[in-house]
Amino acid sequence: MWISNRKQDGRTQEAPGDVGVVTLGGDPAGVYLSGERRWVAVYAPGGYQWRPAVGEKVLVLKAGDHQESPCLVGVRQSEQQLEPGGVRLSGGEGQIDLCKDGIRLTGPVWIDQQSLEDYVAAIAREVTLEILGGG
């Protein structure tokens, strides 16, 4: 019965989710599943933005009545070790690890378009001038 209904409908049943490989980075993205799909929307938790990179393995959910609207919802985690309970944000050359012994920053740190070193130096100059009565 089910097989005959499927043939009458003209569609084969697709899985509601699949793993694909990004072929065009950005948002919208291109993803290779059983063929390349373009203009795939990228979703992330509120307040968080993400741009998938070419070659990344991603989770694709297929939305819509007939699963005609694929969307990217996540990327396969890297093989780098992360301690249980840890959280890692990474992109480009930067990385932030929240772990049991504190916060670890890797890569350059920028505050209001200034390197951390320049920012601290500017504050030190202001404090010095204030102490010496020149500010």
Rank of each mutant, 00 (worst) to 15 (best):
I123C: 15
V58S: 05
I111N: 05
D27A: 14
G86S: 15
G47H: 04
P52K: 03
E93D: 13
S90W: 01
G86Y: 08
C99E: 11
L98P: 15
Q113T: 11
E83F: 09
G102Y: 05
G91T: 05
V73P: 04
R38H: 00
K62T: 05
G92I: 02
A41W: 00
G64K: 03
K57E: 14
K62E: 05
A53M: 14
E83M: 10
I96D: 00
G86L: 06
V58M: 04
R88Q: 06
R88I: 03
G64E: 03
V21N: 04
K62Y: 09
H66C: 14
P52R: 01
P70T: 08
V31C: 03
G64W: 03
E79S: 12
E93M: 12
A29V: 05
G86Q: 08
V58A: 04
T23G: 03
G25Y: 01
L33H: 07
G47W: 08
S69R: 07
G92C: 05
V42W: 00
W39R: 02
Q113I: 05
Q77P: 08
T23R: 01
W50M: 06
P108F: 01
S78E: 15
K57Y: 11
L24W: 02
D65Q: 15
L59T: 05
E83T: 15
L33A: 09
Y48I: 11
C71D: 02
R76C: 15
S115R: 13
Q113L: 12
V109Q: 06
Q67N: 14
D27L: 04
G85P: 12
L61H: 10
T23Q: 02
G102E: 09
G107P: 08
A121I: 11
P84L: 08
V60N: 01
L105M: 10
A121K: 14
L72V: 14
I96L: 06
L72G: 01
G86N: 06
Y48N: 10
R88W: 02
V54K: 09
V120Q: 13
Q113K: 13
D65I: 08
A53K: 15
G35Y: 07
W39E: 02
S90E: 08
W39D: 02
S69N: 11
I111A: 07
A122I: 06
V21H: 04
I111M: 09
G86A: 15
A41L: 01
W50F: 11
L61K: 04
G85M: 13
D112P: 06
W110N: 09
P108S: 10
L105K: 00
Q81H: 12
P28S: 02
D118V: 10
I111P: 02
L98I: 15
I123W: 11
K62F: 14
G30W: 00
A41M: 00
A53H: 07
V75S: 12
E56K: 05
Q114F: 07
R88P: 03
A122N: 11
R88M: 05
V58H: 02
A122F: 08
D97S: 08
Q49C: 09
